[in-house]
Simulated assay, not measured.
Amino acid sequence: MAYAELLEEVKGLNESDMAEVVDFVRFLKTKYNSKTKYRESNMLKGKLNYMAEDFDDSIDGFKG
């Protein structure tokens, strides 16, 4: 579908439907953007507020 054809289709929509089209276009842009495919490193850095003292201990059912 050409850009001009897309514009013609959108012209026939009411305001709320146009808003949905814009939302969908934004979704598609983020879906195919290669930068959003991978988790940002250090995203949780500085967010850990508490870690249990026994965090590194083996779970009872897994002790050998």
Score class of each variant (00 low, 15 high):
residue 6 L to F: 11
residue 18 M to I: 13
residue 33 N to K: 05
residue 20 E to Y: 08
residue 18 M to F: 12
residue 31 K to S: 03
residue 49 N to L: 05
residue 27 F to W: 05
residue 52 A to M: 08
residue 54 D to Q: 05
residue 21 V to S: 05
residue 64 G to H: 07
residue 56 D to H: 11
residue 19 A to H: 12
residue 39 R to F: 00
residue 33 N to I: 01
residue 13 L to Y: 03
residue 62 F to P: 00
residue 28 L to N: 04
residue 38 Y to C: 05
residue 39 R to Y: 03
residue 26 R to N: 12
residue 7 L to N: 13
residue 43 M to T: 15
residue 40 E to T: 09
residue 13 L to T: 03
residue 9 E to S: 14
residue 56 D to L: 08
residue 46 G to N: 06
residue 52 A to Q: 06
residue 16 S to V: 12
residue 9 E to A: 07
residue 23 D to V: 08
residue 14 N to A: 12
residue 40 E to R: 06
residue 39 R to Q: 03
residue 45 K to W: 08
residue 8 E to W: 09
residue 20 E to L: 14
residue 26 R to M: 10
residue 15 E to I: 15
residue 17 D to R: 12
residue 31 K to R: 09
residue 46 G to F: 04
residue 57 D to P: 01
residue 35 K to M: 01
residue 14 N to Q: 14
residue 56 D to Y: 10
residue 57 D to H: 14
residue 59 I to N: 12
residue 35 K to H: 06
residue 33 N to G: 01
residue 24 F to I: 10
residue 58 S to E: 11
residue 36 T to D: 07
residue 23 D to Q: 13
residue 46 G to R: 04
residue 11 K to G: 04
residue 30 T to Q: 03
residue 17 D to E: 15
residue 64 G to Y: 07
residue 47 K to M: 08
residue 50 Y to F: 15
residue 54 D to F: 08
residue 36 T to Y: 06
residue 23 D to H: 06
residue 29 K to A: 03
residue 3 Y to P: 00
residue 61 G to N: 13
residue 40 E to N: 08
residue 1 M to V: 05
residue 23 D to Y: 02
residue 3 Y to A: 08
residue 60 D to S: 11
residue 44 L to F: 13
residue 4 A to H: 09
residue 22 V to D: 01
residue 11 K to P: 00
residue 15 E to Y: 13
residue 38 Y to V: 10
residue 53 E to V: 09
residue 41 S to G: 09
residue 55 F to T: 11
residue 27 F to I: 04
residue 63 K to H: 11
residue 25 V to W: 01
residue 32 Y to E: 01
residue 31 K to E: 03
residue 40 E to W: 01
residue 28 L to D: 04
residue 56 D to P: 00
residue 32 Y to R: 03
residue 19 A to Y: 07
residue 57 D to C: 14
residue 27 F to T: 02
residue 50 Y to D: 13
residue 20 E to C: 03
residue 32 Y to F: 07
residue 10 V to A: 06
residue 11 K to E: 07
residue 48 L to T: 07
residue 53 E to D: 14
residue 49 N to W: 01
residue 29 K to S: 02
residue 24 F to D: 05
residue 51 M to V: 12
residue 13 L to H: 04
residue 14 N to Y: 08
residue 40 E to P: 00
residue 51 M to R: 07
residue 23 D to I: 10
residue 63 K to W: 06
residue 51 M to W: 03
residue 51 M to Q: 05
residue 56 D to F: 07
residue 64 G to V: 08
residue 54 D to I: 02
residue 49 N to G: 04
residue 6 L to A: 15
residue 53 E to Q: 10
residue 38 Y to E: 12
residue 45 K to P: 00
residue 57 D to A: 15
residue 16 S to G: 15
residue 32 Y to Q: 02
residue 17 D to P: 00
residue 34 S to Y: 02
residue 60 D to R: 09
residue 36 T to A: 07
residue 9 E to D: 14
residue 52 A to V: 03
residue 64 G to K: 11
residue 29 K to P: 00
residue 1 M to N: 06
